[in-house]
Simulated scan of single mutants.
Amino acid sequence: MTTFVLVPGFWLGAWAWDAVVAGLRESGHDALALTPLGVGEREAHTGVSTEDQVDDVVARLREQDEPVVLVGHSGAGPVVVAAAERARDEVSALVLVDTGPLPGDVSHLDFVGPERAAHVRRVLADNAGRYPMPSREELGPITAGIDETTFAAVHARSAPVPEGVPCTTARRAERGDPTLPKIVVACIFTAADVREGAAAGAPGFAEMTGPEWSIVELPTGHWPMFSEPRALTDVLVKAGRAGPTAGR
């Protein structure tokens, strides 16, 4: 049996993983889904930064009895990457769902480019320092694979992200650990995109060239836990088999 710890991206809580958690448990594994610090039912925590979210995930990892497969989606990617570096003995494999690592001096807003960053800052200013989930029209093609009813339910249940998360960085180790298996589930980008981005030195792709990295393409929208939960579960189960055989 493998234990999975799952962290959703922006605007989502632990509930976003319900179908995947059910699938993992049906496959004989255990799963713990986390709501990020400062979001949803944990909104009472004010002034939350990316570093605070990393510390929170690390604390939860250290509560586990055995090393886990740590899974981060979208905006949680940089959080789980940093958490795995700080709690290496508690992590057997790292899975990044449609996301990647960021250098320690690059925030989410740095990554998305100046035009998008300016838009997000305007939204934050208009919403008292919180970043609500955009409409489907604003999100565009990345919502592929999710029917209108499901998207409406997700949007209604979504919660704003505190300003400090998209605007701050996560401290990183000087070097990544090559003994930790790292799997990227690529949904709105491809393995070829990763190679091209890495060759260009793009943040988020540049690290994904070491032998510990593997890329699994799952062509769908940016939220495969809603559009392809069974396929995503299968990828995670395979990652769980690979994890304990590598590293420590």
Rank of each mutant, 00 (worst) to 15 (best):
V216P: 05
P103V: 11
E90R: 15
V81C: 12
A191K: 10
A156R: 10
V161W: 03
R88P: 05
P8T: 04
V161S: 07
V235F: 09
R175W: 04
P181L: 07
G100E: 02
P224E: 11
V165N: 01
R86T: 05
L61Q: 03
A31E: 10
A242M: 08
Y131L: 15
A198L: 06
T168R: 07
R241C: 00
V97S: 06
Y131F: 15
T35R: 06
R175E: 13
A59N: 09
F151N: 03
A199T: 04
L24H: 04
H29P: 04
L102Y: 03
A206T: 04
A192N: 07
A33D: 02
E163Y: 09
D98L: 11
I215D: 06
L218W: 02
A117L: 09
D89A: 15
G75H: 04
V54D: 00
R121E: 15
P178N: 10
H222G: 06
E85T: 13
V7Q: 05
P134Q: 06
P203G: 03
T169I: 09
D110V: 14
K238T: 13
V97Y: 03
T220V: 00
A152N: 05
D18W: 14
I146M: 12
A82D: 02
A191N: 04
G164Q: 12
G197M: 08
I183Q: 12
A44S: 14
R121K: 13
D126H: 12
V237T: 11
R25N: 03
G145S: 10
L236H: 03
R130I: 10
W17K: 12
T220K: 00
F226D: 00
V20S: 07
R60C: 01
M1K: 05
P162I: 05
A231K: 07
P103A: 10
E212N: 15
T35L: 10
G75P: 07
G72D: 10
T233W: 01
A16D: 02
R241E: 14
M208N: 02
A118H: 03
A22T: 12
R86M: 03
A191E: 14
L12G: 02
S227M: 11
H222K: 05
V80I: 14
H119I: 10
I183E: 08
G28P: 05
G129Q: 02
V161F: 08
S214I: 14
D55V: 09
P219M: 00
S214V: 15
M225G: 04
W213C: 05
R248N: 11
P181V: 09
T150I: 04
P166K: 11
I188S: 02
E137T: 11
C167H: 01
A93N: 04
T220P: 00
L32F: 03
E228Y: 01
L96C: 08
D56I: 13
R171E: 15
T35C: 11
A125I: 15
G77M: 02
G247L: 07
P181D: 03
P229W: 05
G72C: 10
E228F: 02
F10R: 08
E196F: 00
A76M: 08
T99M: 08
A16H: 07
M208S: 00
L94H: 08
L96P: 04
A83E: 06
G28S: 04
S92Y: 01
G210H: 06
D110R: 00
G100Y: 05
A198I: 11
P244Q: 08
H73C: 00
G204R: 00
G75L: 09
V161R: 06
